[in-house]
Design a protein around this nucleic acid. Structure first.
Lengths: 151, 151
DNA sequence: TATAGATGATTGCGCACGCATTGTCAAGGG
DNA sequence: CCCTTGACAATGCGTGCGCAATCATCTATA
């Protein structure tokens, strides 16, 4: 993809792997559970947190999209009955998104399918020590300071 | 990200690496060259092809987005003067997108910045044999047949 | 040659996003 | 106690995308 610097292949191929995998996951989640991958990740994060609740801001910060995007994403989940909004007692400006039992059920099913598909399409191709190798690579990435934009 | 299956870390961290890198690249390309990453990749592909021209369908097939999306993306590049449309002689249904000299110049600059940023943020973190290892991983992925959707 | 079906590109429509703005509320300083 | 400043969430607006429908053209078949 990104041309003449030969080991840019490691990057450009990563781009393609991501694109293919996301395409498969999105299609599965949409057709079987009527949720997008972004919505899935929000449900997942809620399920991880104590009391199944998080502030909109927290959700946005932990995610790719902005606060306004998250506000509307939560709207959709709320309309679908998967999440419930509640204004924060300790700070009336804020709102919690809370996983409903319907949301919990939908998530459990979607998560199982998601894991299965990731295993089947990706993880199963690699031995355990190879996956460990990948984890080490990505960990190194996150420990590296982000470069200053130079203009 | 994707929960309890521990080596799913290799997948979920890949997701995060992708998100961070794309965020950096998109911002750089947009602020310095006023093009999106998708537009950049189209210009790049045109520059690779003989006569600097490709059909809209080819571009769409080689890319993540659909034909209609590509049609509009080429619209934008055309309005920006980076690309020129020409109806195909051998098939009057089709249209070529052709890289203009302005497009070539913008691309050359953007590509240099892109390569620099990928090197600096990603490639420089790994030794040559590690990058080779990654390439082998991704190659294995593409050689694996895609699983049948099971419902 | 005439015609049915396939294919390339475009376009109407709806949806999800980001940016900028607004309304509401909290916290701190005169 | 008020008033400024900042933070949270929601909303108006513009933009880019996919899907489905459309138009023009090509191709195969009788």
């Amino acid at each position: 993809m990104s041309g003449k610097f030969d080991d840019g292949a490691a990057w450009s191929k990563l781009l393609s792997v991501h694109a293919v995998m996301m395409h498969r996951l999105e299609e599965m989640l949409q057709s079987k559970y009527r949720i997008s991958h972004g919505e899935f990740e929000v449900l997942l994060r809620l399920s991880w947190s104590t009391d199944q609740r998080m502030r909109i801001r927290e959700l946005a910060d932990a995610s790719v999209i902005t606060r306004s995007g998250m506000s509307r994403l939560v709207d959709r989940l709320e309309n679908a009955g998967l999440v419930q909004r509640e204004t924060a007692i300790e700070d009336a400006r804020g709102a919690y998104a809370i996983l409903t039992s319907a949301g919990r059920e939908r998530l459990d099913a979607a998560e199982a399918s998601n894991i299965a598909l990731v295993r089947e399409s990706f993880l199963s191709l690699y031995k355990e020590d190879e996956l460990g190798q990948m984890v080490e690579f990505w960990t190194r990435f996150f420990n590296h300071p982000s470069p200053e934009p130079d203009s």
